[in-house]
Nucleic acid binder design. Sequence first.
DNA 1: ATGAAACAGGCATATTATTGCAAATAGTTT
DNA 2: AAACTATTTGCAATAATATGCCTGTTTCAT
Lengths: 255, 255
Amino acid sequence: MIVTENRIMLKKERQAQIIKQINLHNKVLSSDLSLELNVSEDTIRRDLNELAQEGKIVKVHGGALSKSYNFTATQAETYAYDEKHIIAQKTISLFQDGMTILCSGGTTIRTIANQLPENLNVTFFTVSPLISLELVEHPNTEVILLGGKLSNTSKISVGGEVVAKINEIKADLCILGVNGFDEDGISDSDYEIVQVKKAMIKASKKVVTPMISEKLNSSLRLQVCSAEEVDYLITELPPEHELLAAFHHKVKHIL
Amino acid sequence: MIVTENRIMLKKERQAQIIKQINLHNKVLSSDLSLELNVSEDTIRRDLNELAQEGKIVKVHGGALSKSYNFTATQAETYAYDEKHIIAQKTISLFQDGMTILCSGGTTIRTIANQLPENLNVTFFTVSPLISLELVEHPNTEVILLGGKLSNTSKISVGGEVVAKINEIKADLCILGVNGFDEDGISDSDYEIVQVKKAMIKASKKVVTPMISEKLNSSLRLQVCSAEEVDYLITELPPEHELLAAFHHKVKHIL
DNA sequence: ATGAAACAGGCATATTATTGCAAATAGTTT
DNA sequence: AAACTATTTGCAATAATATGCCTGTTTCAT
């Protein structure tokens, strides 16, 4: 539905049309807008940049996206943000270009996904739709979502199909969100999730477990793996902190 | 004998004319007004500035706009909420316990997912992590997320693996968000998405396309399917609305 | 890897704004 | 009615804005 009644279109008017189109289609291509609004693509690009500047849309290569479509973790709604921020930075220091990284779910992992540096060039596999949406915001990462039945409680893909799929992967790192961790290792309370996590560990060269220190020395009913299988234990505390003392001869590295 | 037509127009009178024009067309160009009212553009500009000062209009480069023309960010984000609500209700009326339903992405579909009744007992397959998260909040629905490479523009799983997976499914309904729709059928602008949508249509007994009426008669580069392949066309309009007339002999049902 | 599309920045042009000023007009006072 | 003042209008010169085109570069998809 193109407005052609008037020969000349005011800039504001044109920009309003653009916003309308974006809200309609969730995305627009500069080339399409150029045709529909009878102005050059340069003008459209300038419009899109202005609108993006004003925060009304999200500019991408070739066009723009609706803003409501994007959602990323905000500082306010993340519990223990400061601690998780520290953990995220430590974890990210392990990432290197070209790596294949397998991620589970959880808010700690989500913070990591959110804080990835722009230029990082890695491939992520994840069973968490939430994490996948966070990761896909980063232009240089490739995100592969592992599908399956979605668990109502943990919001991750579970089931035999996911496990089978994970078994086909050969990852460099496994970033494992944990619910219970003590000297016996990682534990969890949901059978399905345990199966997925076990598969993830098996599929990866190194296992990284970022967690807030308050989860240390908690244990749940089902065993995921032993502490010895953990390559990197990451908390917000300095490695020499007394709370971590008991783990130094168990896990391979503490950050 | 004409004596009054070329009399001098007072300033107040002229400004009243300007307001009238703006209320009529939602916008005015300084150049047009100058011609219509037989005064210099300078005068028009001065008038527009005064009226803008008084808050009666919004002055922009080249003319002025009606105050209601301006979009605010919040208006933009909740754009067409009411319409989408109506569409969601109509779409949900097609759902029955025990069904298997295949969903694409998009904000219209997201609204549907959000408004599902609590007691509905169906299995959803979706390629959209965002939709999956919305669906999984409903206790009685089973959600199966179709994994694959995540498209960073559309945020849905794409690629051969997804298509292969969809081909294994036998669904009752396919709820297809559309970006372009006209008498030739459904069109889209992204090659990968078209592949996924084609597979979805093939895997389903009935194809349902909920869309805002503004998308009617818009068309994009790539063809997804013909209008004849659509079983239910759902818009916020009553089925007998004239805008839908052209589609009655094309699609099977219009709601 | 390679070719096409999209981008950024600069430049040229046309349109629109602003300002100061003088002429015209309206309103007021004598 | 004449004179005076304030307002309005048009004009010209200058500034600002908007747009399209061009060039070299970046990004993207195959």
